[in-house]
Design a protein around this nucleic acid. Sequence first.
DNA 1: ATAAAATTGTTGCACTTGCAACATTTTACA
DNA 2: TGTAAAATGTTGCAAGTGCAACAATTTTAT
Lengths: 208, 208
Amino acid sequence: MSALFNGISEKEKNKLFTLLHTHVYTFEDNINIIPTIRNTNIIGIVDEGSIEFTKTNYYGDTTLIEVLEKDDIFGTSISSLYNNEVELITKGKTTVIIIDFKRLMKEENISKSYYNIFIQNLFTILNEKIKDKNDRISILTNKTIRNRLLEYFNSNRAAGTNNVYLPFNFTNLAAYLGVDRSAMTRELKYLKEERLIEIKGKRITILY
Amino acid sequence: MSALFNGISEKEKNKLFTLLHTHVYTFEDNINIIPTIRNTNIIGIVDEGSIEFTKTNYYGDTTLIEVLEKDDIFGTSISSLYNNEVELITKGKTTVIIIDFKRLMKEENISKSYYNIFIQNLFTILNEKIKDKNDRISILTNKTIRNRLLEYFNSNRAAGTNNVYLPFNFTNLAAYLGVDRSAMTRELKYLKEERLIEIKGKRITILY
DNA sequence: ATAAAATTGTTGCACTTGCAACATTTTACA
DNA sequence: TGTAAAATGTTGCAAGTGCAACAATTTTAT
């Protein structure tokens, strides 16, 4: 659960949506939602389902930028919908809440305390997004698969432990690390043989 | 020049700084400024000089995350100062303006129109930062030096032209792309020989 | 103007990795 | 419960790239 509505009651949340004239859209599985919401300066919130945010370069290679789950945000003023190589593809039936960014910034809203909390939460989430991206950049600048794995494991330990719980499967881990999956599997085998890690399902234990 | 003070006059800017109780710090060359500003929930603005934002992983490899120039922003609520592997190193004598984030979010400020513009500008800048990082991630997931170069060139054309003007030298380009500099030089030679690009100083012309 | 420092260019070599092609196992779903 | 689909595991091989070590050039500072 994201922090977007932290400190805001369900009642206030509904008031906020009225105040901001939010729109709700529902999409079937595997739809690019950008054509529906394009040309508007908006903030979108995933309310149900999930969305894969991808970017395709000029020769057709696609990068998975992030997976947006319930209460994650996206939008012109947050990511880069204006870029036509970018797609937001629904995974499963998906509902999104759309807020007009201009309305969000209207002064008359400001007397409401929950409005201020909402703006603060938005900043906090953007902060976390930037931090996550910095972390991924740091990992991607490693020159070997081994170092990418080790840095990933190191910076994703469960607090106070030597365990990492993968938030996705190994195929997606390879994509996240920007490496060939089979080559990554080989490297994981070496790491296990050298007893630097142990793997049990999606739990990796760091032994080094 | 960043957009942080777009639509805000110099007079209003000074009023804003008074309103927000900003602090100004000046540092000599090559100082890590984090110890001075740590433990505060702040937004920092570079007013003079520049700052290299680096991240060092657990085995000592350092990644240059971004270079902050005049009017660029940083901070707990924007990047990840709480992370102790992170450094903000001044390049040359550098002055920064520090704004307490809590104060920035105080409701009593809100009647001022320039305050609202300032908040909007902050969102816009964060948006651009996220977009830049997404672009870099997209480039870094390419598996060959050649493809990283070509995608970089393609997504950094000067508007409406086939020219790219490097904002840094080739050594830093290699760091940005996460590749060995000498290997990159070799690849650039091949690209020139195959007449896919032309290089004249820091101007690259795309011929493909 | 000159020395020092930084940047750029070059190349051999070892090694990592992508790729392809396929086997095996697990998961999804009708 | 059975079958298709997805995920994981394996391996040979060619190709790309990091690394090291050095030369040449350009920039910076005094």
